[in-house]
Design a protein around this nucleic acid. Structure first.
Lengths: 218, 218
DNA sequence: ACGGTGTACTATACACCGTACGTTATAGAG
DNA sequence: CTCTATAACGTACGGTGTATAGTACACCGT
């Protein structure tokens, strides 16, 4: 009975395999049995290192958040804010599963604190008081989360020919008398479901709002 | 063999039952077999009216979106935008499953068009050009989605004593030298994870940004 | 009144999931 | 060289969505 040798597994290896599977198979098709199989190991072997599936999810999320680059120094705070938001977005785009990991699981752990620390530090240094800094942080974070999750979902839908066809036909069958504006703006709506331009549009709105709320900064 | 009578089921009844189950059991604990049992019917009976589970999800989402109130007329466009965003948010708070239905499933169907029509109509009437109207619509929608999903998840976490304790201890164990700002702002961060004030803070930032981008309105 | 027909629901079955429990072989300590 | 802790295994249970086939009822034209 060829038993697999003794120390084939470790948490990092499992996390890496899990991440690969989520990205190739899609988050919903991901399963503990799948990652065990990919590691050439029985399903229960995972439980030596993780208490359950959610525990593994959290580990993957933490791993991904650790990849975020540090905040650039020596630029105006507006650009620092932009940089933080953009790098979170581009990490989510690179690893689409991150969107679901962030919005579907309770977050805890150091890595979440790291991104908060960066953004809050920028805001405090720019002169925001404690309350405004915290509120702004939450606002920016949830905007990035919402906008990018949406973009990822739209992109996924466009890739699935069946869903894409259904969406197109629904759009085209909309009564022009009942939904005049939607029909009129159909091309623009299709163009603004994602992309850097769309993301920056909303981000710049927020930053402009911040700027005028706190005009004595520079 | 006491067969259940012939026309006990209809789509609307199934949707209503599914919605009740999602709200009482939580979205993750929801199952086709559960709603079938609640209806006193075999699991496969659902398939007479819905092609599969996702199809039922879509129907529930459509049903909920239909509950959105119309846009108020005869007020400045800023207040109309606020009203639309707030009513979407309060619908999501009333039906927490809607957050997951919106961000986890491709959307299609008339009801999505209805909310888009309302918001786009307001923006066009306020003088936004086609492109800006579409971009603004997407920005506002994704902000509401992200902010409210986050709020719902935080509230759920606070309700689960196990997760809540873990989050508290993680927060308290953060090194004050590694995460000085987070530690310093802990009380503010705890206060700004949700609530009307937090939501309006971000919403007002966006509207302020819109206002200054388009100063010739009123 | 009656047999045929469509259909609303049932029964059975399959593949898969997460994971509780008990077992076993091996790596390292003594 | 033996002992022990533990990493990985096997088995099993209760759950899921759903494909496929079957069944009894409502309605229909005759």
């Amino acid at each position: 009975m060829a038993r697999t040798p003794r120390n084939t597994l470790n948490p990092e290896l499992i996390v890496r395999t899990a991440l690969e599977l989520m990205e190739s198979e899609g988050t919903s098709a991901f399963s503990l049995r799948g990652v065990a199989a990919a590691l050439g190991v029985g399903p229960m072997a995972i439980y030596t290192y993780f208490r359950n599936k959610d525990d593994l999810y959290d580990a993957v999320r933490n791993h991904l958040m650790g990849l975020l680059p540090p905040v650039p120094a020596d630029v105006p705070w507006q650009d620092q804010v932009r940089a933080v938001c953009r790098s979170l977005r581009s990490l989510m785009l690179q690893h689409p599963c991150l969107a679901q990991l962030l919005s579907g699981r309770p977050l805890s752990g150091q890595e979440t604190a790291r991104v908060a620390e960066g953004l809050l530090g920028v805001l405090r240094a720019a002169g925001f008081d404690k309350e405004r800094a915290a509120r702004t942080h939450t606002t920016l974070f949830t905007y990035v989360l919402g906008a990018t999750s949406w973009e990822i979902q739209m992109a996924a839908e466009r890739r699935d020919p069946e869903a894409w066809r259904r969406l197109r036909t629904t759009m085209e069958s909309l009564s022009a008398t009942e939904f005049p504006t939607v029909v009129d703006l159909a091309p623009e709506l299709a163009r603004t479901t994602g992309g850097d331009t769309q993301f920056d549009y909303g981000l710049d709105l927020l930053i402009a709002g911040l700027d005028m709320q706190k005009p004595r900064a520079t």
